[in-house]
Structures are given as C-alpha cells and as structure tokens.
C-alpha cells in the first residue's frame, strides 16, 4: 500500500468484507431478533464503505475531529465466538473487537509512514474506526451495561 488510493481501496474492501460477515452471520442466527440486529450491523458497515468511496472520489473528508473518545470497554472484554446462537451482547463484543482491531491497524500504519498525505489518510482511517468503535461501545454501555 504505497498510494492513498491503494490504502482507501484496502479500507473499502475491509468494510465490504465485514458487511458480508454480518450478513452471513445474520442468515445463520438462531436467537430471536438477532437476524435484524446483525443486518443492522451489516448495513452500518455498508454505510462506512460508501463513506470511504465518497472520500476516494473527493466528495468527502475523513473524520475531521481532533479526538474521538475511547470508552475502553472493548479492551477488557474476553473474546467471544461468532456462533449461530450468538446473543446481542456477544454480537456487540464481536463488532467492538473488529473495530478496535481496524483502529489499531491504521494507527500502527500511521506510525510507520513518514509525514505526508499517506500518513494523514491512515490517521483519518484510524479516527473513522475509533468512531465506529465508539458507536458500538455506546450501544453496549446503554443496552448491556444497563444496570452498571
């Protein structure tokens, strides 16, 4: 990945892959209501992909915010399986962990390239993923940690 377009193509491909992952999981989901929840997740990833496509076409900028809050909920949760009988709580954990992994990947890449346009793109992508993680962490905070 040596050019901005290559990086964005990679990121777009990742979003597409994750959207397909949730859609596939939704097809297999056994618990009541989980199909809809997972399809919501899939559509959310599709929106991320479309946003990145717009960035690539110069119609949109990557996350301009200085900092995205890190609730750090994900960091201390155990890994869970994306099994057919996945619960809402575990689906959120899977989503948060995936967003966190993507955030870390782009943050690491940003740290490895020299100052310049490429670095800015990696930083921007990292912030995008941080925002996505915050979205899922906020849902977890509200719905799973309702009494906590």
């Amino acid at each position: 990945m040596n050019t901005v377009d290559e990086v964005l193509d990679y990121a777009i491909g990742q979003e597409e892959e994750v959207a397909a992952f949730y859609a596939s999981l939704a097809q297999r989901a056994e618990k009541a209501g989980m199909k809809d929840v997972l399809m919501d997740f899939s559509r959310e990833e599709q929106r991320h992909k479309e946003r990145l496509l717009a960035v690539k076409q110069g119609e949109h900028e990557l996350t301009p915010e200085q900092n995205v809050v890190d609730l750090k909920i994900t960091d201390y949760l155990v890994d869970v399986d994306a099994s057919d009988d996945i619960s809402y709580q575990d689906a959120l954990i899977v989503a948060m962990k995936r967003e966190r992994a993507a955030y870390r990947l782009y943050s690491d890449m940003a740290g490895k390239v020299p100052e310049g346009e490429l670095k800015e793109v990696f930083v921007g992508l990292a912030k995008e993923e941080a925002k996505h993680k915050l979205f899922f962490e906020s849902q977890y905070d509200e719905r799973v940690l309702s009494d906590n």
Binding site: K31, A32, G33, Q89, L145, S146
Partner: peptide, 20 residues
C-alpha cells in the same frame, strides 16, 4: 449488571414472524 430474556422456547419458524 442487568438481565435479559430467554426466548429459546419459541421456534425458529415462529421467531421469523415475531418482531424482537
């Protein structure tokens, strides 16, 4: 920290018809 439901007594076919 909270509690949830157990709706496993409802068959997959019936779940398809219900909004959960």
């Amino acid at each position: 920290i909270g509690q949830g439901s157990d709706l496993d007594f409802i068959s997959k076919e019936d779940q398809e018809q219900l909004e959960v």
